[in-house]
Design a protein around this nucleic acid. Structure first.
Lengths: 187, 187
DNA sequence: CTCCTTTTAGAGGATACGTTCTAGAATGTT
DNA sequence: AACATTCTAGAACGTATCCTCTAAAAGGAG
C-alpha cells in the first residue's frame, strides 16, 4: 500500500483552520499552513491539488459539522433548539465557528472548485429542505429567528475570541418566542 | 499652489470601496484600485503612504458615516430608531454597508497604522459613550437589540446584494420591544 | 518668463505566494 | 531481495503585489 501518511487530511485541515481562525483567510497561505502543520508544502499539494481545493474542503467540513445539529433540531420541529444550536456549538468549537461566521466562502476559496460544487449544493439543499419541513411559520420569520439572530448574537463574542455568555441564549430564546409566537414567558 | 489634483482623497476611497464591495478585501490591490480610479498607482501612494493607510482610511470614513445616525438616535433616547438605522442605512449605502458588515478591520488593513489609532479610538469612544448615555437598560441587552440583531437581520441580504425587505424592520422592531421591554403590540 | 511646489505617470525592484518538480523515505507485494 | 506505490521533503520557478524612484505635467509666486 505504500508509505503510510504522516499527515492525515483532517490534520492538514486542522492546521488550515487554526491559521485561518487566528489571522484570517489572507494569512492562510500554503507556507503558513505547512509550517503550522510541521510538514512540507509538497504534502499539502499531494492531498489537495491546490490551495482553493484545500480551503474549500475546510469550508465543506466546517459547514457540514455545524449544520448537523441545526438540521436535526429543525426536523424534529424544535425551532428553539435550532436557534440555540448556534451559541452552543460556538462554545464547543470556537475556531470553526469563527471561520464559518466571520468569513465568506469566497474569502477562503476565491474560485470554488468545480469538483466540489456538488458537495456544496448538497449542503445547501439539506438546510433548505429542513427549513421547508418546518411548516406553520413564514419562512422569512423562521430564518430570522433561527439563523440571523443567533448569528448576530454570537458574532461580537467570536471576534473577541471568547465564548458567548449565557445571556445570549436567553435573548435568542426570547426573540424566538416572539417572532415565532411560540408562547412561554417573555424576557 | 502647484499642480491641481486630478483625483481627490474621496475619489480614491470611492474606487477602493467599489473594488472591495465587489470582490472582497483581497481583490482591493493597489493596481485594482488604480485601474478602477482611472489613474496611476503613484497617485495613491502620493495621497496615502501605503495600502494599509488607504484601506484604513476607507474603514474610518465608512464607520464614521454609519455611526452618525446611530449615535444620534441613541443620544435622543430612541433605541428603536437606533436599531432601525442599520437596515435603513443599508438600503441607502449598499456598498459601504457591505464593506462595513461583511468584513473585519484586519481583513482590510492587516496592520492598523499607528497614525490612525487615535481616530479609531475616537470612533469607538463615540459609540461607547452613546450606549452608556442610554440608562435604564442593561448594556448587553441594549447592544443585542440595537446592534447584533439588526446586523444579523441585514447580513444575508447584503451578501446577495439586494436591499433588506421591509419585513426586516418589523422583525427588528418586535425584537427591540421584547428585549428592551418597551411596550407596544407584539408582532 | 523663470523658479517652486504639487501632482500625475508609470517603469522597476524586492518580496511573497502558489505551484511544480525532483529526490528520497517507508511500506506492501511478488 | 527487488519492485511498485504512496507519501514526505524542500528546492526552484513564474507570477503578482506592494512600494520606490525618476521624469514630466500643471499651475502659482516673484
Amino acid at each position: 500500500m505504500g508509505r503510510p501518511a504522516k499527515f492525515s487530511q483532517d490534520q492538514i485541515l486542522d492546521a488550515a483552520l487554526a491559521v485561518t481562525a487566528e489571522d484570517g483567510p489572507a494569512a492562510a497561505t500554503i507556507a503558513a499552513i505547512a509550517e503550522r502543520l510541521g510538514g512540507p508544502s509538497g504534502s499539502l499539494y499531494h492531498r489537495f491539488g491546490s490551495r482553493d481545493l484545500l480551503l474549500a474542503s475546510l469550508w465543506l467540513r466546517t459547514v457540514g459539522r455545524f449544520q448537523h445539529g441545526f438540521v436535526t433540531a429543525l426536523k424534529e420541529g424544535d425551532a428553539l433548539a435550532a436557534a440555540l444550536h448556534t451559541p452552543r456549538w460556538c462554545r464547543l468549537h470556537m475556531d470553526e465557528a469563527a471561520v464559518l461566521l466571520l468569513y465568506r466562502r469566497r474569502d477562503l476559496a476565491s474560485a470554488w472548485p468545480a469538483e466540489l460544487s456538488r458537495d456544496l449544493e448538497a449542503l445547501n439543499t439539506r438546510v433548505s429542505d429542513a427549513l421547508s419541513s418546518f411548516t406553520g411559520v413564514d419562512r422569512e420569520r423562521l430564518v430570522f429567528a433561527t439563523v440571523d439572530v443567533p448569528y448576530g448574537a454570537v458574532r461580537r463574542h467570536l471576534l473577541e475570541r471568547r465564548p458567548p455568555p449565557p445571556l445570549v441564549d436567553e435573548l435568542i430564546a426570547s426573540t424566538c418566542r416572539v417572532v415565532l409566537r411560540l408562547g412561554g414567558s417573555p424576557g
